[in-house]
Amino acid sequence: MLPQESPSGELPMNTQVMRLLSGVSVHGDQHLAEVERDLVQMDVLLDEAIKKLCTNFMAIHHAVDRQQEALNGLLAGSIPAAECAARFEALRGEIGQHVGAAVTGLQFQDMTSQLIGRMVQHLAGLRDVFGALDTNGAALPESGSEALLALLGDIGSRVGVRSSGVRSTVNQRHMESGDIELF
């Protein structure tokens, strides 16, 4: 059954209140769900990035130790120069690979800062939804009056207007290097 309209064409107060509460709930939930999604994604990216950085930092440290051993062997004359040169070359390549992986891991800041920026926009949207409910301390019009119905209608539409979405620019779920496509 359709709700009865008032003589001025507005919906009855109980319908207006229900619509308002529903709007606050839906839009508030949307903002919070997006913030939750971004937090989970950020947690995954940070976890992978720190693991990648730790692993490669330790590997670089280990390779530098082996470089020092080779150098000591060369200075002591226990390792032939040709063998030592080959070891240095191999270690150089190994260190380069670990540094490259660390550079990939270090890019977490770029992605997480975009996610944080998006979360801030959603939190601002949530604040706006609650802000739309504020009557600025003015006394509410009398219950059942047309002025109250108009006020509820106005608040309801403001809640809807202030809840526009924020497009996600970060969809990465891992800290592995991304695809390359040449046109």
């Binding site: 690979q97 540094v99 490259g100 992986a101 550079v103 990939t104 891991g105 890019q107 977490f108 770029d110 992605m111 990465q172 800290m175 592995e176 290097s177 991304g178 695809d179 390359i180 496509e181 040449l182 046109f183």
Partner: peptide, 11 residues
């Protein structure tokens, strides 16, 4: 001329 998705691998 091309599209590279972050994060990048230096090599």
């Amino acid at each position: 001329n091309g599209w590279l998705v972050k994060p990048f691998d230096p090599a």
